[in-house]
Amino acid sequence: NQESVVAAQLIPINTALTLVMMTTRVVSPTGIPAEDIPRLISMQVNQVVPMGTTLMPDMVKGYA
């Protein structure tokens, strides 16, 4: 089963992602794949992401 990127903390809107903000977990439905974490660093979220929420492609500016 593929791991997806999950918020390790509350991420406010327009925050640039850092490694410490993200963790990985096997979730359903699947979100952004864990191997894309290096690509996500410094990208901004376009909404508030509560802790434990799976990051979906449409939540990250410039990802999709």
Rank of each mutant, 00 (worst) to 15 (best):
Glu3Gly: 03
Ile11Asn: 00
Ile41Leu: 13
Met51Ala: 07
Val49His: 00
Thr23Pro: 01
Leu19Thr: 10
Val27Pro: 00
Ala7Asp: 01
Thr15His: 05
Pro33Gln: 07
Thr23Tyr: 10
Gly52Asp: 14
Glu3Val: 05
Thr15Gln: 07
Gln44Leu: 14
Asp58Gln: 14
Val49Ala: 03
Val26Ser: 15
Val45Glu: 00
Thr18Tyr: 03
Asp58Pro: 11
Val48Ala: 11
Ala8Phe: 05
Val6Gly: 01
Asn14His: 07
Ile32Thr: 02
Leu19Ala: 13
Thr30Leu: 10
Ser4Arg: 02
Pro29Leu: 05
Pro12Glu: 12
Leu10Ser: 11
Val45Ser: 10
Thr24Arg: 09
Met51Ile: 10
Pro29Gln: 11
Gln2Arg: 02
Lys61Ala: 07
Leu10Val: 10
Thr30Arg: 02
Val48Leu: 14
Pro50Ile: 04
Asn14Phe: 10
Met43Gln: 08
Val49Thr: 04
Val6Tyr: 03
Ser4Trp: 03
Ile41Val: 11
Met59Gly: 01
Thr15Asn: 06
Gln44Pro: 09
Ile41Phe: 06
Ala7Glu: 00
Val45Arg: 00
Gly62Asn: 15
Pro38Tyr: 04
Val6Ser: 05
Pro57Glu: 12
Val60Gly: 02
Gln47Ile: 09
Leu19Arg: 09
Met43His: 10
Asn1Pro: 15
Val49Phe: 02
Gln2Trp: 14
Pro33Ser: 13
Met56Asp: 13
Tyr63Asp: 06
Met51His: 13
Lys61Phe: 05
Pro38Glu: 06
Val20Trp: 05
Ala64Ser: 12
Gln44Thr: 11
Val27Asp: 13
Met22Trp: 02
Val45Met: 03
Val27Asn: 06
Leu10Trp: 14
Ile41Gly: 02
Pro57His: 13
Leu55Asp: 00
Arg25Asp: 14
Gly62Ser: 09
Met56Thr: 12
Ile41Tyr: 05
Val5Gln: 00
Arg39Asp: 03
Glu3Tyr: 05
Arg25Ala: 15
Glu3Asn: 06
Ile13Asn: 14
Glu35Thr: 12
Gln47Thr: 10
Ala64Leu: 15
Asn1Glu: 15
Val5Arg: 00
Val60Asp: 02
Asn14Ala: 04
Thr18Glu: 10
Leu40Phe: 02
Gln2Asn: 15
Thr24Glu: 13
Asn1Ser: 15
Ile32Cys: 06
Pro38Trp: 05
Thr54Ser: 07
Thr24Met: 13
Ile13Asp: 13
Asn1Arg: 02
Ile11Met: 05
Arg25Glu: 13
Val27Ala: 15
Gln2Glu: 15
Glu3Cys: 12
Thr15Trp: 03
Pro57Phe: 09
Pro50Val: 10
Leu19His: 12
Val45Ile: 04
